[in-house]
């Protein structure tokens, strides 16, 4: 014994507090947090895709007017569109394509007598889009019954809905973090209660509160890392599993796990943040709780 340096035993017995239960419940919290993060990522990506598609195109609508020849109306509108800077392509939709757009609302339409407007799909140069006010004015001057739909209303609605969902996701994440903090506080109290006798001895031989509070850092560090890793990995596996189901959920999973490389890296970074945050939360909360309680007990 005299020749070898003895590694001192932990001052608090490692199994004296219910940290195994904390690890399991924290892992569940981390899993839920990872799911919420995945949902937030998907919402943001979906909104980006939708708004990108909507802002890249506008629609010109030609209503039926009794004294106007639809062919002339179309020709005049196409002339304006082709001569306007910032428009890459103008493509009139045939009647079949226009009817298919109405299908979600009106169902399958077979009659030929339904007066539906002629639509022109206009692809814009995103780097230098045209002045929409001037374009609409030019179209109205060239032909009667022509209007320009810039999809602004849809874009606003989508952005609003996405913002609502994002806020909801952030709220869920905040609740999960709050619940995790409460769990760690409860566990830290249990640790102190389980080691009350040892703490009493330490206080009487001159241990500072910071020394006693530090004694559990390693336990809470391990808890945070383990719970965070398990939660994040199981959540990723869930998204992989969803991507393989083949039903409507598969697209959700695929969008997340088989995203382009750059996006995938950001997605993974968000999941890696889960164990990091869980560990910080466990160590900092336990340290503050123990310091506070020890300060009260002196």
């Amino acid at each position: 014994m005299a020749n070898t340096i003895q590694k001192p035993a932990p001052i608090f017995p490692p199994r004296a507090a219910p940290l195994a239960s904390l690890t399991v419940t924290m892992a569940v919290m981390c899993y839920l947090a990872s799911l919420a993060i995945g949902a937030l990522i998907l919402i943001n990506h979906a909104v980006d895709n939708w708004t990108h598609g909507l802002s890249r195109e506008v629609t010109v609508q030609l209503r039926h007017i009794s004294d106007v020849d639809p062919a002339v109306q179309l020709q005049q509108s196409m002339q304006v569109l082709s001569s306007t800077a910032g428009i890459l392509k103008a493509e009139p939709l045939d009647r079949k394509a226009s009817l298919s757009l109405l299908e979600p609302w009106l169902g399958k339409i077979t009659g030929e007598d339904l007066p539906i407007p002629q639509l022109i799909r206009v692809t814009l140069d995103e780097a230098a889009p045209p002045d929409f006010v001037a374009l609409e004015k030019a179209l109205n001057t060239a032909a009667k019954g022509v209007s320009l739909d810039t999809h602004q209303r849809w874009e606003t609605e989508l952005t609003r809905a996405a913002s609502l969902l994002s806020n909801l996701g952030c709220g869920v994440l905040a609740l999960i973090i709050l619940a995790s903090v409460m769990l760690v506080i409860f566990a830290a109290r249990a640790v102190l209660e389980a080691n009350r006798q040892v703490v009493g001895v330490l206080e009487l031989i001159g241990a500072k509160n910071s020394f006693i509070a530090r004694l559990n850092d390693w336990q809470f560090l391990k808890t945070g890392i383990l719970a965070g890793c398990v939660g994040a990995v199981v959540a990723l596996l869930t998204f992989y599993a969803l991507s393989a189901t083949g039903d409507s959920f598969s697209q959700v999973g695929q969008a997340l796990v088989f995203a382009p490389q750059g996006i995938q890296f950001i997605n993974l970074a968000a999941f890696v943040a889960v164990p990091v945050v869980a560990t910080l939360l466990a160590v900092v909360t336990s340290r503050l709780t123990l310091s506070h309680m020890l300060g009260q007990s002196r």
């Binding site: 001192p8 035993a9 001052i11 006798q197 040892v198 009493g200 001895v201």
Partner: peptide, 10 residues
């Protein structure tokens, strides 16, 4: 007031 899980040395 000895700590039960620590050895005499500790």
């Amino acid at each position: 007031r000895l700590v039960g899980h620590l050895s005499v040395f500790d």
